[in-house]
């Protein structure tokens, strides 16, 4: 499979991720959407790295995987806190801060 194939897959993943974060009402789904976006980027990095012939992209991908994990950890902690306060994990439910 050529570079184009990887790019198409990653673009589809990105689109799915964005749709998931925008359309879904459940925080867990939204976090999964975010993971999809990040992994789409990782796929890009690795593919470009492979086709460019040096390792910068792969190193970047490793960093980004670790960061995604850290971000997910913090996000889940926050979600847990919010669940304790509001009894809900739908981001629309907390509405103390409104226009």
């Amino acid at each position: 499979m050529g570079l184009a194939g990887y790019l198409i897959v990653s673009a589809v993943m990105l689109a799915c991720g964005i749709v998931c974060t925008v359309a879904r009402k459940n925080v867990i789904y939204i976090l999964m959407g975010i993971e999809l976006i990040l992994n789409a980027a990782n796929l890009n990095l690795v593919a470009f790295s492979r086709f460019n012939g040096h390792l910068d992209g792969q190193v970047f991908a490793i960093f980004s995987i670790i960061l995604a994990a850290a971000e997910a950890a913090v996000a889940l902690a926050i979600v847990l806190n919010v669940f304790g306060l509001f009894d809900s994990i739908r981001p629309d439910d907390p509405d103390l801060l409104k226009e």
């Binding site: 964005i18 470009f48 103390l96």
Partner: peptide, 30 residues
Amino acid sequence: RRSGEAALKYVIFGAVASGVMLYGFTLIYG
């Protein structure tokens, strides 16, 4: 509760935005 709600909104918004930015970076790299 306000603080928790703010953090939730911030983390969702921030994660999506930085994810999209990362994708942009990969395109520049490509």
